[in-house]
Computed example of a mutant assay.
Amino acid sequence: MTAAVPSAPAPAPSGSRRRRRRSGFATALPFLAPALLAYAVFVVAPMFESVRLSFFEWTGFVGAPQEFVGLKNYIKIFTQDAVFWTALRNTVIWVVLSLIIPLTISLALAVALNRPLFGRNVFRSMFYIPGVLASIAVANMWRWIYNPNYGVGESLGTAFGLPWLSDIQWLGDQKIALYSVFAAFVWQSVGTNMVLFLAGLQAVQSEHIEAARIDGANAWQVFRNVTLPALRPTMVIVTVLTFIGSIKVFDLIVGMTGGGPAQQTQVLALWSYQQSLGNHQYGMGNAIATVLLLITLLIVVPYLAWTARQEER
């Protein structure tokens, strides 16, 4: 007589799953309420106020009237503000470079420092320290490095007999100033991303790596077919954080060039600030900020939706 094989339990109805999710959210809501309230007051409300002000003309002074002008501010920034297009171009360049150079360096450092290595923790700390420094401190440090009178370029030019190196105006040349500032951004950001990648590498199963090596895979094949797929959730987080951090870059440029020379390092976040607080054109400044918000949402939200669909497959 054969024993009856127990049947697999039937999946719970979708309605019961939805009820469990609702009950779980209701249970967690009291704990989330303080953080949600702070987020609503200090993030959501100012964001909506910024969008509202983009439809008004206002000098920003207390008691000054706010005149509703509709889409006039948006028309101005797109048709009459040449600096806006320079700032938009520089922002796009900055974002594209940020998604390529720092991420590549951070991933390479994480993979290298995830292996048994003498002094590994010391190297990890050295690369991570710039990420905890204030951006304005990093800006002042790199301004000293780029100083044409006593900076690194002057020292290297004198030491190696390369006078042309001493003559380079790293922050004064319109063609290279943006990339000189970007070098400071790379130096500051690679350490933080490296730590995130290191955390993601801990999820890679060593058994999978050993199995791939036994099958004859070389180091590149193991990385491409085993390590990189396991890093996909971490890659999503790092990519989104890098994109958001790069599209709203502000402190480094303020501290190093202030948008100069001749507005060639101007970016949207800084131009929005200068229009609002420097030129007292809060309407145009908030219109630029709203454009920046829309660009962010149009890129981040579809990217997160696409990655969510990839995870479900």
Score class of each variant (00 low, 15 high):
Phe118Pro: 13
Val69Tyr: 02
Ile105Gln: 07
Ser125Pro: 14
Ser54Tyr: 00
Gly63Asp: 13
Leu53Cys: 01
Asn90Pro: 03
Phe78Tyr: 02
Gly70Trp: 06
Ser106Tyr: 02
Ala38Glu: 07
Pro30Tyr: 06
Leu117Ala: 07
Thr27Glu: 10
Pro30Asn: 06
Tyr128Trp: 15
Leu103Met: 05
Asn114Ala: 08
Ser125Asn: 11
Arg120Leu: 10
Val62Cys: 11
Pro65Ile: 07
Arg20Trp: 14
Phe68Asn: 02
Thr91Met: 01
Thr27Leu: 15
Val96His: 02
Arg21Trp: 13
Arg21Met: 14
Gly24Ala: 15
Thr104Asp: 09
Ala38Gly: 10
Ala35Leu: 13
Val95Glu: 02
Thr27His: 14
Ile101Ser: 00
Pro30Phe: 08
Lys72Ser: 09
Glu57Val: 04
Ala45Pro: 00
Val92Ala: 06
Phe123Met: 13
Phe31Ala: 12
Val122Pro: 03
Glu49Pro: 02
Ile129Met: 13
Thr86Ile: 05
Val51Arg: 05
Asp81Glu: 04
Arg115Thr: 07
Asn114Pro: 03
Ile101Pro: 01
Val96Ala: 00
Asn121Cys: 11
Arg124Met: 13
Phe55Ser: 10
Thr27Ala: 14
Phe84His: 03
Ile129Thr: 11
Ala82Phe: 03
Pro102Phe: 00
Val122Cys: 10
Ile77Gly: 01
Arg21Ile: 12
Pro102Met: 01
Val69Gln: 04
Arg52Asp: 10
Ser135Gly: 15
Ile129Phe: 12
Glu67Ser: 10
Leu99Asn: 03
Phe127Thr: 04
Thr104Gly: 12
Pro130Leu: 11
Arg18Cys: 13
Thr91Asn: 05
Pro130Val: 05
Leu37Tyr: 11
Ala40Glu: 02
Leu32Glu: 08
Pro34Lys: 04
Arg52Trp: 05
Gly60Pro: 01
Ser23His: 15
Phe123Leu: 13
Met47Ile: 07
Arg52Glu: 04
Arg22Pro: 07
Val43Ile: 10
Val44Gly: 06
Val44Gln: 05
Val69Arg: 04
Val92Tyr: 01
Gly131Ile: 08
Pro102Thr: 00
Lys76Val: 03
Leu71Ser: 05
Val95Leu: 00
Leu103Asn: 12
Phe61Met: 07
Leu29Phe: 12
Ala134Met: 12
Glu49Lys: 00
Leu97Lys: 02
Val44Ser: 09
Val92Leu: 07
